[in-house]
Amino acid sequence: MKPAQSPPARPSDVYFFATCVVDQFFPGAGMDAITLLESQGIRVHFPEEQTCCGQPAYTSGFPDEARKVAAHQLTLFPNEWPVVVPSGSCAGMMKHHYPTLFAADPIRKAQAEKLSARIYEFTDFLVNVLGWHPEDHGDACTVVLHTSCSARREMGVHLTGRKLLGDLHKVTVAQQDHESECCGFGGTFSVKQPEISGAMVEDKVKALKATGAERVVSADCGCLMNILGHAAWKDRQEGRAKPSLPGEHIASFLLRRTSK
């Protein structure tokens, strides 16, 4: 686990790199994350030209294609502001894999290194840069937190989400069995090895449900797509109309709890 970087001074402006998954599949999570940042007095800039960090191609063994897509993102953040990413996995790609990806390209390697130093996962930014302590205005409830493998093992930011939830004094955070275990998403792994991926997500959803929590929250929409996708499939299989495991991005949950 790599330690989170030392907190810089509180910035006036940040860039928001939404990730392609949030832009297309979880836009509400992106809006809520932006709204939360703005509520802390930060100006949030969303470069319109942004697309994807390039990770799907990179982890599938297509580095040339990943480089083309990543190279495009390198040019989008000209000012020295932090780049906040609402996903440990995409943040990990930009922070830790961009410099390797461009190792043989001096110009882009320098750009990648400069950018990677400014990449922050969303919950890490709230806790370690803003020093934010959310104030809870919601009713008592129990949630369970799923932390992504990238947040945990690449970014070392698996504790910041827990810290934020811990500040919400009417929220009980349930502890699931095998918390640190992967949900089985893994990008193209989920379709290349569907039997193994399916077994992993089945076990993950069982463990999350066994806590009795009302919902699952996570700072990674890739995992949520997998976990909620399986939970909903299971509900369909078993003829349940009401979702047995609702879930959302931690930004949406935090925004709702802290809104008066």
Binding site: A18, V22, D23, Q24, F25, F26, P27, G28, G30, M31, I34, F46, E48, S190, V191, K192, P194, G198, V201, E202, M225, N226, G229, H230, A232, W233, R236
Partner: peptide, 25 residues
């Protein structure tokens, strides 16, 4: 959707992208 839907519901893009929501706001 191939192997994805063997144990998951299909993936469906949201009706509006984040960039559309930001524009509207």
């Amino acid at each position: 959707q191939g192997a994805w839907t063997s144990v998951r519901v299909p993936l469906k893009p949201a009706p509006k992208r984040l960039r559309d929501m930001l524009k509207e706001r």
